[in-house]
Design a protein around this nucleic acid. Structure first.
Lengths: 192, 192
DNA sequence: CAAGTAAACTAACAACTGTTAGTTTTTTTA
DNA sequence: TAAAAAAACTAACAGTTGTTAGTTTACTTG
């Protein structure tokens, strides 16, 4: 754990503002004001507004990519892999709900790093699709439309940043477990 | 069905641009250019940039509110009500994926109509919460955390605007049905 | 075809944008 | 405590923003 630099503080503050109004609507003067300084002073620590966005998004995207790689390799069932993916999202999102807002809504403003981000994202979706497809083949997962199952799970996980701040009385472990139950078993009461 | 006015065309074009870059990043000159005219000419048809956003979002929000009211009143089971809510989202979203992007991401820029929108949204969530709670009480729905079930369903439905354009080979009826299956029954294969 | 209306135009505004250059103040280090 | 480094400042820039005013062009209607 290295100490938090002034740059880190700026990025964290920026992420908070970006979540409230979106990247484009936050000015460098807004950010400076939230930091208690003048806009020009920000440039002693960061290169550009773009760079802030890049730092927020790319580090998160790589965290997801790395996390999924570990899950993919591990020797567990498909359902268990999905449960681990739920944990991955809950953990990363719990630690950085502000950054997750940018990841979800402001990625299109990345410019130079846009292609790299899109590659990470489509690889991520493809790996998760593969986990589901394997589960169907092995008979662990129902033989329904794979795209719909993928979409449903991923939509829920990607929206966590909106809900976790409102329900922070639930700790990450309990949230992961209950969310897995709902996603895997559905909501209907089985008659058995 | 009344004829489409020039104003309607502007709003539709704006919604498309807003989906790509977000409300704040789209300039009136961008919009004018997409309409094949000069920025000043837009003001023959609309009052302000704000008004465009308001027209996009409020009409959609009211459509959802009205739709849910009808479902709420109808004399069907809780699970059937949820299936109808799925249909409601699939239908509205299929007809206006661009507008749904603004509804989800740009509502915070509504200004004068912001409070009204927030009221519609919290009422909507509360009514859906009530449908789920009723289902639990009647034994149709599992006795899990209601907030998590609500969150999971609503997150999936609110993200439809991102997925429907990619999967438009699925017609709304089939999509609604398969999505209901996944949301209600989950993804795991029951051993029976 | 004349008159009225709808819809485009040009030109300009005041405010705001991200960013830079150069300078001063504060904090750390030797 | 002097020197060095970090972090703030003021002033200003060139470009962009939403919007208005006034004018011209195109279409519709009596």
């Amino acid at each position: 754990m290295k100490a938090e630099t002034r740059k880190d503080e700026i990025i964290k503050t920026a992420a908070k503002l970006f979540k409230e109004k979106g990247f484009s609507a936050v000015t460098m003067r807004d950010l400076a004001s939230a930091m208690g300084m003048k806009a020009a002073s920000l440039y002693n620590h960061i290169k550009s507004k773009q760079e802030i966005l890049k730092e927020i998004i790319i580090s998160l995207a790589e965290e997801f990519t790395h996390g999924l790689e570990l899950i993919q390799k591990s020797d567990i069932s498909s359902i268990q892999k999905i449960e681990e993916v739920v944990k991955l999202h809950v953990n990363i999102t719990s630690q950085n709900t502000f950054g997750m807002a940018s990841l979800n809504n402001d990625w299109m403003h990345l410019e130079e790093k846009l292609d790299y981000y899109l590659e990470l994202r489509s690889n991520y979706e493809e790996e998760l699709r593969q986990i589901i497809a394997d589960g169907v083949k092995k008979g662990e997962i129902i033989d329904e439309n794979i795209e719909i199952m993928l979409f449903s799970i991923l939509s829920t996980l990607r929206s966590l940043y909106l809900w976790i701040p409102k329900k922070d009385y639930l700790n990450p472990e309990k949230l992961s477990q209950e969310l897995s139950t709902v996603l895997v078993k559905g909501i209907n009461k089985k008659i058995d």
